[in-house]
Design a protein around this nucleic acid. Structure first.
Lengths: 139, 139
DNA sequence: TATTGTTATACTCTATAACTATA
DNA sequence: TATAGTTATAGAGTATAACAATA
């Protein structure tokens, strides 16, 4: 192949890890977009459909449907924005908070077991790499 | 949130990096499955639909359609397996090899520029992390 | 009889375009 | 007039079930 080690093996490693982490969510009840929405509003509080669509990288109609699925599942509710009659706020329900915590727990359980099996040096390497990767991805 | 730093920030970092690398492919002509197939057969040689489906995590009919799209695009061809009449081999065409190289070039260009901006120690950290991540993901 | 691949069909997700309501 | 959200409709991708061919 053309570019053997120019990327330090990062592209392959990130791709494999991403697929594995997605599999370890252990729930196929929500798709990627729906999961992103639930994670966002449970972690960072209520958001408008526009904000969620921009973050998830989907169009307003797609986000509308994704939110509708979460509403039907009882995980979030739509509330009118008290300051702007045009806007809607997507707010997690207690069930939604529980569900999000449960998914995070499963995923952390799987990853945590792997991390525990590493040496302190390896863990330190990964923690440092996570910071560097985050900077690169956001650049 | 419930599990602040137990994952060393890896889940978020991997997710962001994956999305960014996908965006930097700079081509929306192929979807994830199709791209995975083309990457696989150009990097590791001809594979059967079953092997490709297992790797990409899709069912045989889905893989069949994905391969069909690549065939229509002139990027791969289906050839009979000389040793087993039931099997089919997906083989990249010259065009397919060129296309895959081009995508890799764009992605490496973006990532390479970021890696060049790092210190030697940071690059070493990332290379070590890539190896560890690969082991974890494949475990 | 098991395995590999293919076809038929339906469902989910997403997008574009058009419409409604509020600022 | 611009912005936020919604509705209508169509296209792409995937899955389950059933079928064909070969080992």
């Amino acid at each position: 192949m053309s570019f053997p080690e120019q990327d330090l093996g990062l592209i392959g490693a990130v791709g494999r890890m991403y697929r594995r982490l997605r599999a370890e969510r252990g729930s196929d009840e929500l798709n990627d977009t729906q999961f992103t929405v639930l994670a966002m509003v449970t972690r960072e509080g209520p958001r408008t459909p526009s904000e969620l669509g921009a973050f998830a990288g989907v169009t307003p109609p797609s986000m509308h449907q994704a939110i509708g699925c979460l509403v039907d599942a009882g995980l979030v509710v739509r509330e009118p924005d008290p300051h702007d009659g045009r806007k809607v706020l997507v707010v997690p329900t207690a069930t939604g908070e529980q569900f999000a915590d449960e998914v995070r727990r499963r995923r952390h359980e799987w990853l945590g077991a792997r991390l525990d099996a590493l040496s302190p040096e390896e863990r330190q390497t990964l923690a440092a790499a996570a910071r560097i990767l985050r900077d690169i991805a956001d650049s």
